[in-house]
């Protein structure tokens, strides 16, 4: 029983990371209709930026977050302006390919700046074990789950109550109609990219604090696809829940079915979901008519 609880709690922690990364994907997909393949690279880049900030000034976790997030938003805005904005109106395939190209560029640049070796990054959190019931936790693990909950709350409030959030939902529902209603679609796209980078920064810092800060971190972006698909491509809250489920499924597969299954469990889930329910748990159903 303790083994099961341990697996589930470990799964929830890695699932929280997947969930945060997948929320970044979902936000951009919702607003622009494009899967941003560079999301994992954004996570990695912002985590490295946070590492450099933490090396320069001694900050606690929340103040580090408060410094990094605006920088991440600026990075997101810049990338959108340079790479994505000129492609406005091109077919989705072309834009997705641009994000793939962007991903490779960001990956190379990050490694060339910070070097290929993994770094130790505590993100201003202590490393004393906290025990909840029978299960020991590192503070970073609890922060990851907590931050996921906060992000879900913020995303819900943002999309439901703020003017920009409602405009974003309008763009997601019908871009042309939103444009005719006076919504600046370009600005919504830019906002989506900057907010998505902000989410990436939170995810990156917590992932680095929990696991490691290395040049293969971009891979977490691809590892988060199962969460995104399970939640439904365009649902932020779905992505968060999908992340938690995928995290638990992965650790359970590893614990009970065998080593090595952890990496592919999520992808097997993807194939199954796409066969059975391609729009995921919470996604909008695309109905195609002739």
């Amino acid at each position: 029983m303790d083994f099961l609880l341990l697996l589930i709690s470990a799964g929830l922690v890695s699932g929280a990371a997947y969930g945060m990364i997948a929320m970044g994907f979902a936000l951009i997909y919702k607003a622009t209709g494009v899967v941003n393949f560079a999301q994992g690279e954004l996570v990695m880049l912002t985590a490295y930026v946070a590492f450099s900030i933490a090396g320069a000034v001694d900050l606690g976790f929340w103040s580090l977050l408060a410094v990094t997030v605006p920088i991440a938003m600026a990075i997101g805005l810049t990338l959108e302006r340079i790479f994505i904005r000129p492609m406005l109106g091109e077919p989705a395939f072309a834009i997705v390919m641009v994000t793939i190209g962007l991903a490779v560029i960001l990956r190379g640049v990050t490694i060339m700046i910070w070097g290929p070796d993994p770094l130790d990054f505590a993100a201003g959190l202590s490393r004393e074990v906290i025990t909840l019931g029978p299960i020991p936790f590192y503070p970073a693990q609890l922060y990851a789950i907590g931050c996921l909950a906060i992000l879900v709350g913020l995303a819900y409030g943002f999309l439901r109550y703020t003017r920009v959030g409602i405009a974003m939902r309008a763009v997601a529902a019908n871009e042309t109609a939103a444009l005719l209603m006076g919504v600046s679609v370009k600005r919504i796209h830019a906002v989506a990219w900057s907010l998505s980078s902000a989410i990436a920064a939170v995810a990156g810092i917590l992932f680095a604090a929990n696991f490691k800060l290395g040049p293969d971190m971009w891979f977490q972006g691809l590892r988060s696809f199962p969460a995104l698909i399970l939640g439904g491509l365009d649902s932020l809250i779905g992505a968060a829940i999908g992340g938690l489920i995928i995290g638990v499924v992965e650790t359970l597969a590893q614990g009970y079915l065998g080593q090595g299954l952890r990496e592919i469990a999520g992808f097997v889930v993807i194939v199954v979901i796409l066969m059975v329910r391609p729009y995921g748990l919470f996604g909008a159903r695309d109905i195609e008519r002739v």
Binding site: V98, R107, V109
Partner: peptide, 15 residues
């Protein structure tokens, strides 16, 4: 990394 960046730039510029 340099090769990767070159590929990325080629993709982005051509598209």
């Amino acid at each position: 990394e340099i090769r990767g960046i070159a590929y990325g730039v080629v993709i982005v510029v051509f598209l």
